[in-house]
């Protein structure tokens, strides 16, 4: 059994807690949060030990691994603190609010040989994984251009008073929504290196951007467009997609559906020339406990397995999340310049 503690029982924290609670190889030893109400509910109806102070939780409950799901501005200090106590860390995304802080976290985790992971769950979705396999094997030929998009109804009216709308706390569409797409592009197509220009636009928020539109260039010189808007109420929930065109074909892909067009019959064995449509049902390995999408359970399971040394700590490690932080910083700078 891996002893796990949680810091921050908000929307993501509670979701992780439930998935961890159902995991056969996890023992939840402590939960810390600053909300008295949340702690009271957990105290009364669950069997988890609760703490108002996360340091106390680590001292008393002695977890081997800690999930950090607090507002982004607290990430750097808390994650560092947890790492220095020699505990494996799963943190929510993005890793940190600044590139410098993120670098330090990557270094500490590596030096201390601790398992480190960030919650970019899209990498655990079968359709996106398939896109990567097709591209890595050259079936799309030379990649010409791509579009990475994400839309959702997170903020659809001029009324907000939480940390996501505060730039100082790591709020904003760039940090919250666009980070997912940036991470996915880095993973499927290769690292983003240059930002040719960006528009960060607010529709409803006073202090942060509600949308991000950027022209990207990858290290491989492939060009692309990033288009993200969290104020689109025509989406029931956040929806992320990739559209990639190459010399040998094209991929249109979201979390549910994978469509690929091959110009010739030079394609993988189970595909054919022309359009091929596959669905998430074709790619999804079953999980032992389902809460809100297989990928959320799969990423937690991967983290636990990495601690048990059953899988390498390569997917979504701090280094890869830090690469996203760097692109976020590049996008901000492309505005300031």
């Amino acid at each position: 059994m891996i002893k796990v503690g949680l810091i921050g029982a908000g929307k993501m924290g509670i979701s992780h807690l439930s998935i961890l609670g159902a995991h056969p190889e996890v023992e939840i030893v402590g939960v810390s949060d600053t909300s008295k109400m949340v702690l009271d509910v957990l105290k009364q109806y669950s069997s988890f030990q609760t703490f108002t102070n996360y340091e106390e939780m680590m001292e008393e409950a002695k977890p081997q691994a800690v999930f950090v799901a607090v507002p982004t501005k607290f990430h750097a200090a808390m994650i560092k603190n947890v790492l220095l106590r020699n505990k494996h860390v799963f943190a929510e995304k993005p890793l940190s609010t600044t590139v410098e802080e993120g670098r330090e976290l990557v270094e500490i985790a590596q030096t201390n040989n601790l398992v480190n992971q960030v919650g970019y769950h899209n990498k655990f979705i079968g359709t996106f994984q398939e896109a990567k396999v097709i591209i890595d094997n050259g079936y799309l030929g030379e990649i010409f251009h791509f579009t990475g998009e994400s839309y959702g109804p997170l903020l659809i009216r001029a009324k907000q008073n939480n940390w996501r709308s505060n730039p100082l706390e790591g709020g904003g569409c760039l940090m919250d929504y666009a980070s997912h797409v940036i991470d996915l592009i880095n993973y499927v197509l290769g690292p983003i290196e240059k930002i040719k220009g960006s528009i960060l636009k607010s529709f409803y928020s006073k202090n942060v951007e509600d949308s991000v539109f950027s022209l990207l260039e990858l290290k491989s010189k492939i060009s692309g467009v990033l288009s993200v808007n969290w104020s689109d109420e025509t989406y029931r929930k956040m929806s992320t997609s990739l559209n990639i065109i190459g010399s040998k074909g094209k991929i249109i892909c979201d979390a549910n559906e994978f469509k690929v067009y091959f110009k010739t019959s030079d394609c993988p064995a189970n595909y054919s020339k022309g359009w091929n449509v596959r669905h998430i049902t074709d790619f999804t390995p079953p999980v032992n406990f389902y809460l809100r999408g297989e990928e959320y359970s799969a990423q937690v399971d991967y983290f636990i397995k990495a601690i048990q040394k059953k899988v390498p700590n390569t997917i979504n490690n701090f280094q890869s999340a830090w690469n996203v932080d760097k692109v976020i910083s590049l996008i901000r700078n492309s505005i300031n310049n």
């Binding site: 509670i14 439930s18 669950s46 389902y290």
Partner: peptide
């Protein structure tokens, strides 16, 4: 969503 959330939280 709620049934399974409560189930995982063992509530």
């Amino acid at each position: 969503n709620i049934t399974d959330l409560l189930l995982g939280l063992r509530m």
